[in-house]
Amino acid sequence: MSEIVLEIKDLSTHFFTDRGEVPAIEQVSIRVHKGEVVGIVGESGCGKSVTSLSIMQLVPSPPGKIVSGEINFKGEDLAPASEKRMKKIRGNEISMIFQEPMTSLNPLFTIGNQMIEALRIHQKVSKKEAREKSIEMLKLVGIPRAESIIDEYPHQLSGGMRQRVMIAMSMSCNPELLIADEPTTALDVTIQAQILELMRKLNKEKDTAILLITHDLGVVADICDRVIVMYSGQVVEEGTKREVLKDPKHPYSKGLIRSIPKLHGREEKLYSIPGTVPKPKMDRIGCRFAPRCEFAFERCFKENPGLYPTGDGRSSRCFLYDKSEGDKKINAATNKEATIGG
């Protein structure tokens, strides 16, 4: 494996609200290598956006606060970094594409104004050079009439074009890491295909590492190398995309993958995980997934599971894989799955 660009260690971010402390993410650890595309998947509210905002130090504070953990970016811990330092890093070494493109483009300024300013913050270039570079980037992301679009306002562009402008902006400084939070969720599939193609191209050509947040496992299968599954604020499973999508270990990942309707093949009834995703609370005891888990046993309600190795270099936050439980439990789980899934 090539060098590590980003290594998050035991990161916890909490919100201190009127209703009490909300542990949005707990002890999240993620590693991203140079040129790698890592996906974070999980259902609404599981902490995907909070994880990415924490890396950029953009969690609204108050009420949010990183309460513990490290964010090592090329050997430097960003968790205690000053706002001045972060300004240097943001949009330059680490770029971010936000979940809603409209909120991240200023409606009062032209596309050109925003792109040129962003470029000039980090690079010593003249206005004219910055403008030329911006037009070049807009062309690269497939914006037609780039020379005139650059003088238009965000509202004059379609959603897909705005998202492409965001990508052009985020790539214009050749970042080492691009964090993309649901970059295609608001877009149509045919436009999504264009954007994913573009991200793939930039990743291949510039060796940019990408941390891609999505709830769409199809997108993961399409462009990610590795994938991290989150549930209720915790990482519950990690592996290559093939490992996780083809052979999920954690009962939640298994359920999630089985509940997606398939585009190919036939199925009579969809599998569905009973119950709903719980809201994060402080001092929870037991596995977060236990109330919905078909394999849950006594211990699951009494102790918090750690990440246990599953024997193939991967790990899973589930007692089934704890050696001290013996093989009986794992076998039960795998056998049961074979009868349902097979």
Binding site: G142, P144, D188, Q192, L196, A221, K246, K262, L263
Partner: peptide, 25 residues
């Protein structure tokens, strides 16, 4: 045809011939 080819399939073993449409709706 383009629409169907653009849907990302969660099965990583399915190799798709993707038809990337140009331009916006």
């Amino acid at each position: 045809q383009a629409l169907l080819s653009a849907v990302p399939d969660p099965d990583p073993d399915i190799e798709k011939e993707r038809i990337i449409l140009k331009g916006d709706v």
